[in-house]
């Protein structure tokens, strides 16, 4: 059954309530399925929980609301260009603090556009990082023996383990 309301209320994993318009929620496949299956009306007391923390959910909803008009109706080239600039500004965020959470949320909510954007942003940020910065951010331990490090250095003289 299709929904008869303009916006629905969802709960974050922290238990906070958020409003999201139906057209924006449709950007997420699981939310779209839910909208098709459940009748949301003003007297409906069913509030779905999204397993994403409040801080991340605010950003995800912001992205959805911005992209929904274009996703639903298509857009001109100038709109697409404006949206691209907006995406760049939107993605200016701390990697550890929020970007990784956005990645997890976009993956969980099956949001292809946001997932691609977040992956590309993470890759662009990683380009400028040192090997030890990468290890720290991804919680990785250096498991090369000193002999293996030496061998890799010989093969690729520019290689650094720090």
């Amino acid at each position: 059954m299709s929904s008869s309301v303009e916006a629905i209320t969802v709960l974050s994993s922290d238990g906070d309530e958020f409003k999201i318009t139906v057209s924006a929620a449709k950007l997420s496949k699981p939310l779209n399925w839910m909208l098709e299956d459940v009748c949301f009306s003003d007297d409906c007391d069913e509030v779905p929980t999204i397993e994403v923390n409040s801080k991340t959910l605010v950003k995800v909803i912001e992205y959805c609301e911005k992209h929904a008009p274009r996703a639903n109706s298509g857009a001109s080239d100038s709109d697409a260009e404006e949206l691209k600039k907006w995406d760049i500004e939107f993605m200016k965020m701390d990697v550890k603090d929020i970007l990784f959470h956005i990645l997890m949320a976009a993956n969980y909510l099956h949001m292809e556009g946001l997932y691609d954007l977040a992956c590309q942003t993470a890759a662009d940020l990683m380009k400028g990082m040192t090997v030890s910065q990468i290890r720290k951010i991804f919680h990785i331990k250096n498991d090369f023996s000193s002999e293996e490090q030496e061998q890799l250095r010989r093969q690729h003289p520019g290689c650094s383990f720090d």
Partner: peptide, 26 residues
């Protein structure tokens, strides 16, 4: 991050970065 997300990020890096990052771990 799960492996699937990892791979999706890493495949977007230029080869130059991948050569550097092969020193991250085995």
């Amino acid at each position: 991050l799960p492996q699937e997300i990892f791979t999706n990020i890493l495949k977007r890096l230029p080869v130059k970065s991948l050569i550097r990052f092969q020193c991250v771990c085995k």
